[in-house]
Amino acid sequence: MSDMKPVARPLSPHLQIYKPMLSMMMSILHRITGVAISGGLLLLVWWLTAAAVSDDYFNLVQAFFGHWFGRLVLFGFTWALIHHALGGLRHFVWDTGRGFALPTVEKMVWLHLIAGIGLTLAVWIIGYWVMA
């Protein structure tokens, strides 16, 4: 029992051994967008906190979001949020035991990608329309 040296056992093949596939990329993207949203939430809380604190601070935060860089970050945040939410909907479908056939998965992937970009653009078009 005293000699418990770790043995170098063979490991099962990991990601780099598999040919990249769309469904696998979407799975990874679901995680990446999830982590990105975690950072994006700080922006929302920052904006709310600024609104609660003072006029000067609120104007500063508004100026950041009005800048092209701030808008780019917000655009990315919007897409990540919508893409992740749609991924969640797919998970709900899978939770019922449906939608696992490969042709179905492929179709869902494309629908997911297109709907994600489309809804993001729709939100921003509405946004610019409201501001105009």
Partner: peptide
């Protein structure tokens, strides 16, 4: 800590306003 910080700040801001 990150989750608690976000929740704390968000609730403070919302309650105050």
């Amino acid at each position: 800590v990150y989750a608690a910080l976000l929740a704390g700040l968000a609730l403070y801001a919302l309650l105050k306003m």
